[in-house]
Amino acid sequence: MSTTNVPAGASSTSKNKMPPGMVMGPDGKPCKICTAFRNWRPGTTSGIEGNERGRAGGGGHRSAAAMMAALASGTASEKTNAVARIDGPPPNCPPDVEQLGRATWTFLHTTAAYYPERPSPTQRANMLMLLRSLPVLYPCTNCADDFGEDMKTHPPDVSGRVGLSRWLCERHNEVNEKLGKERFDCAKTDERWKDGPEDGRCD
């Protein structure tokens, strides 16, 4: 990570390295919405989470989007998820990158699960507009840029519910792979995001 800028009048000895996991925004300042709360507030990180974060390669452009997707996908370990709950922002605080990511992926996957089998031209156009708006409007600019670059290589499939669900699952899996996480079985998107498991525990 790069070092933080030294404020005017501060001595060079006051330079501190960026905390691990802290992400810089496009303005050259620490990006709060791009950073997990435990990394924004040093001292809240546990040893367990530190090991997980180390495997993710610290902060930066790729790991911010990767952490967002991995936590939302349910592939993160039980220990990591437990730490995320403990170290997340207190109630009624703005979300950190992990809360925002989980909410966004939940919304996208669930929207795809209920997308029509045979969407009308208007429905296809609206879905494309929704997906194409993310790289422009998503608050975490590093995450947005990463997703936008991925969309250039893999244009969205809005042909129907199955195609869209698979497309989102594949995008999510690409990010999971960047973290060294397991791939989600894209044949199970309906079970995860619409129908629930066959044992009925979600009914």
Rank of each mutant, 00 (worst) to 15 (best):
M1Q: 10
T4G: 15
T4K: 13
P7Y: 08
T13E: 14
M18L: 13
C31F: 07
C31A: 14
T35R: 04
N39Q: 13
T44M: 13
S46N: 12
G47F: 07
N51M: 15
E52Q: 13
R55W: 10
R55Y: 10
G59P: 02
A69Q: 03
A72C: 06
T75N: 11
E78R: 11
V83H: 11
A84C: 02
A84S: 07
G88T: 07
P90S: 05
P91N: 01
Q99K: 15
L100M: 10
R102L: 05
T104Q: 12
W105A: 01
H109P: 00
H109Q: 11
H109T: 01
T110L: 10
T110C: 13
T111C: 09
A112D: 12
Y115C: 06
E117M: 09
R118H: 13
S120F: 07
S120P: 04
P121S: 05
Q123K: 14
Q123F: 07
L128D: 09
M129Y: 02
L130R: 00
L131I: 11
P135I: 01
V136Y: 00
Y138Q: 12
C140Q: 04
D145A: 06
D146G: 02
D150N: 03
T153K: 15
P155S: 11
S159M: 02
R161K: 10
L164H: 03
H172V: 00
N173E: 08
E174D: 13
E174T: 04
N176F: 00
K178I: 04
R192A: 07
D195S: 15
D195I: 09
P197I: 12
E198T: 12
D199L: 12
D199C: 15
D199W: 15
D203G: 14
